[in-house]
Nucleic acid binder design. Structure first.
Lengths: 208, 208
DNA sequence: GTCTATAGGGGGATAGAC
DNA sequence: GTCTATCCCCCTATAGAC
């Protein structure tokens, strides 16, 4: 007997796809304008439906914002595990960390910009979840710097502060980088790797 | 003969004061929420008047936003002239630059955060004015780094890129600094001076 | 799943009295 | 300089038909 479940499965999939496409449409609109100046009607119009239909996929406009921000934030952590041990070449791991960060951030600049800019439009609970992801990543970077100091690869007075300084440095790229500029994102990432090494007191590495 | 002008002068002054206080009230509200979710009526209520009265002082809500952002941006440039010559100690000038930047940015964090976050709510013309100020400052920092390299004080592959990297680094502080944290803003500024020196390849200075 | 219609509440800005 | 009243528009979200 063919269960209705099997038939519905096809529908479920296109529901999920449609939901995903609404999230992408919303991202573009939120990025170009504001969360608060993009109405449900504008999202619906861009998606080719009426306002009420949006609520078939999402329970509220805030949920749309949350899903955009949560996805890009948790995906980053999942895709960038910072694995190393005391045998690792900390200078190489640093370069990996910096490059991956800059590439991911540029690739997902739209959702990430929304995440930072529209933080206070999330409910308290949702905000805590996103901040939790960010702190988790920050702590792993700080731990890495600290471990690198212990291993003798870096020289820092205050590894925890240097960790956030490193993040400050590489987070800034999206604010000014433009693809048609003098340098490519790869060239910038490479230079920022060098700058990071110097900042962490690892400038005398004999290998990159 | 007592001109009406003299009498009006007193009134003008309190008009200017009231306008200024409306700008400060608006800053707080825009900072805590969004430009687009703070209504004229909310601003007026916080200022102790009705919505229509706001239009006695400003021609539009956008003008309020522009004045907040323009003031804090142009004041920064005016208050932080980057003066040096080939005789200067570039390491010391760098420390001055970094400290002043961090202190000013923290002191004026509310208006500055609004400036970066609400940029796209400005009219095109107003946006250009603000971006002009920012670029002016960025170029002066890049020129400084470049001059420091020529003078032999810094070692950078790409002074223009290193200039924006320096700004990325010190711009980040406001995003995470909290006054009740482990370090004071003075301690952080001091450490960021050290980190900047290392990043610019000036770490071997015998004086700070 | 999508629609129309609507509830219930704001928004920015202006006119014109006082 | 401040007010009330108002214009016309948009908002999020829901009810209920199809």
């Amino acid at each position: 007997m063919i269960s209705p479940g099997l038939i519905i499965e096809g529908d479920d999939k296109s529901v999920a796809e449609k939901a995903q496409s609404i999230l992408e449409i919303s991202s573009s609109l939120f990025f170009e304008n504001d969360y608060n100046s993009v109405g449900i009607r504008a999202i619906a119009h861009a998606a080719g439906v009426r306002g009420a239909s949006i609520y078939h996929y999402f329970s509220s406009k805030e949920e749309i914002l949350f899903l955009i921000v949560k996805e890009v934030t948790s995906d980053f952590i999942d895709s960038s595990p910072l694995v190393y041990d005391e045998e690792s070449d900390f200078r190489k791991v640093l370069r990996m960390l910096v490059s991956k960060h800059i590439f991911y951030f540029w690739e997902h600049r739209i959702a990430l910009a929304i995440g930072y800019r529209e933080m206070h439009n999330l409910t308290l609970e949702h905000k805590k979840i996103v901040q939790g992801y960010r702190l988790e990543y920050q702590h792993s970077v700080q731990r890495f710097v600290s471990d690198g100091v212990v291993a003798g690869a870096f020289q820092c007075k205050d590894p925890n502060l240097t960790g956030v300084a490193l993040l400050d440095l590489i987070n800034g790229v999206n604010d000014w980088f433009r693809p048609n500029g003098r340098l490519s994102i790869e060239q910038i990432a490479d230079q920022y790797c060098d700058l990071s090494q110097q900042m962490l007191g690892a400038q005398n590495a004999n290998d990159k």
